[in-house]
Design a protein around this nucleic acid. Sequence first.
DNA 1: TTGTATGCGTTATCAC
DNA 2: GTGATAACGCATACAA
Lengths: 377, 377
Amino acid sequence: MTKSKLSVEQCATELKAVIARENRRVTSYDVAQVAGVSQSAVSRCFKPGASVSKATYALVMRAAALLDYIPNAAARSLITRRSNMVALIITNQANLYYPELLAELSQQINARGKRVLLFTLQREADVDCVLADVWQYQVDGVIAAARLSAEHIAEFERRRMPLVLFNRMLRDHSVNTVTCDHDEAGRLLVSRLAAAGHRQFGIIAGDADLSVAYERRRGACERIAELGLPPPVIAPGQYDYRSGALGLKAIIAQLGSVPDAIICGNDLMAIGCLDCARLELDIEVPGQLSVAGFDAVEPSSWIGYNLTTLRQPLPKMAASAADLLCARIAQHDTEIEKRVFSAQFIEGATARLTPAGASITAPARSATGLPLPVAIM
Amino acid sequence: MTKSKLSVEQCATELKAVIARENRRVTSYDVAQVAGVSQSAVSRCFKPGASVSKATYALVMRAAALLDYIPNAAARSLITRRSNMVALIITNQANLYYPELLAELSQQINARGKRVLLFTLQREADVDCVLADVWQYQVDGVIAAARLSAEHIAEFERRRMPLVLFNRMLRDHSVNTVTCDHDEAGRLLVSRLAAAGHRQFGIIAGDADLSVAYERRRGACERIAELGLPPPVIAPGQYDYRSGALGLKAIIAQLGSVPDAIICGNDLMAIGCLDCARLELDIEVPGQLSVAGFDAVEPSSWIGYNLTTLRQPLPKMAASAADLLCARIAQHDTEIEKRVFSAQFIEGATARLTPAGASITAPARSATGLPLPVAIM
DNA sequence: TTGTATGCGTTATCAC
DNA sequence: GTGATAACGCATACAA
């Protein structure tokens, strides 16, 4: 017994030397040779659920350990036609504004036994170069938190590449999507503010190119109209801190006075607006002016801000996206699904609010049919 | 001519139908068939700098386009032993605190013609599982912004896998590293504060496990000692907003009074400290107390904060890491390098400072031999 | 359960 | 410049 083990070790050591000399990789053949079995036996040992005897398995594993053997994923994917890689296409913007998103998606994908091939886009236009790489690298599927054109979507279908869009809706296209109902979020925010007596709204909108920004704004505007309130003053913005101050000043200038409430396309702008109001213009918030944002980024919870905002359930959305994609990878003919999540209202302290549920002129609509989120606190 | 083109198109369409029926991929053989050349010719056409005639190239490219052919990276990497993939191992922490880091690294790696295989670590302990994947996927190299043990490093050497550590020093190990001189940054901060008359320091330290936090603290403490100032009061912290307030209170409690200055392990803690001082304890900053942080995260520049802090040159560091790694991938016997960058001092307005360059008791030391950074403004 | 033989899709080597 | 042929390292159908 001891003698046999020794010889196995010796054999392994010698073989390793040969491999090093020939400057090649350790292969399943090498393991087979040391273990005294066939190459296919080695292959089976690394395939969960294959039929291998205990004895062979032990022999092979011992040899593999001695040789530092690890199966080559490239070779495997060549024959199985599965790379177990998923491409993640994400804009720099998305990554900056939602730093936890990438981690969540990556974690969820890894948890499902797949690896993440990351593509970050500096500009949305870079998507073409990125897609070429996606096709080359034989990923099993793609999650895109970036804007894709109808042509891009068509190419995914043509190549039968599973795709899930994250927070990007593409109307009239049959693509799996996971989104937060930003439209509903905008409506909800207006409803709550209107219920507390706010009448004149200002809106600092995000980049109109972004569907997220567009939907939030549209939801808010529609609800304002439904409630018969005066039309809001809308200032453009670019989702950054600076836009908040600029937007606030623009709104005041156009209106000739301070509005009752300002809705910002995201928290960064809301915080910029807040700082400008309090520190520069000496406007009391929420005394004279209510300010609200979207996203519940970390600084929004700092005691200096305690912002009224809405939070996307990113962890659930990420899990959902991974689920959807993996289901489609496992079975290419699964039905197209569009999963919509509701944002969670965070009362904060930058807006005058009446308790949730207070009746207002018109009932809030839930675009998804899901129950409206309950305000916390 | 027209006739020939037509027949090529017909040929392609028919072949595509066959391929679809057989449910297989488009290969270089298919392209060769349509183009009427050999498979090798097709292969060469997709290799930059190979010797192919203009005519053949045109034929092949036309056929490839008709068939939607893209070379299979898995098959290529099998024979070339180059996957053109680089693994990026990053802790969730690092990603949260430096959201731009990932984008920078990813961009720099892509710019060098390589793809990023992303591995995020929830806990540093997960590194073992991740490394197994790294070996499997035949990446050409690894950039790790996570803690690796000496054993891990040894395995990289054993497998001859190029590695660059990002902001993680491992003393007495020959690994390529790119770091910011956090030690120097800590010293610099103390020097500037001391020059302005601060004597009693408080330090809210980061998790001692993190080398970044450890070095910043050590640099500050050493410099305080060198200058003959009273020993600082040190409170523990965890790199988050909450730790700032807790740390401040702990320091005041232990000292029985407000110190002259508090140095925080990062900006998040500094902002937490600042908010607590101003909003909760009614301490004037910088009137009664100077507060400084590290990292120059976005909120540190908001007008409500305008924090005194130090910025790591992350873009340059990322580029450097990518350079180092790619050099080593191209030539495995390049010398081990340790590149150290200096942090940039941001004066801000949360600390009382005298103009840069004012003389102090002992000269500031540059651990790297590089010139000390010049304060801006 | 095990071994043999074959193919996955590419690049590389060599004649021509 | 071009085409045949042999790897690359693995999984799998099939025979044993």
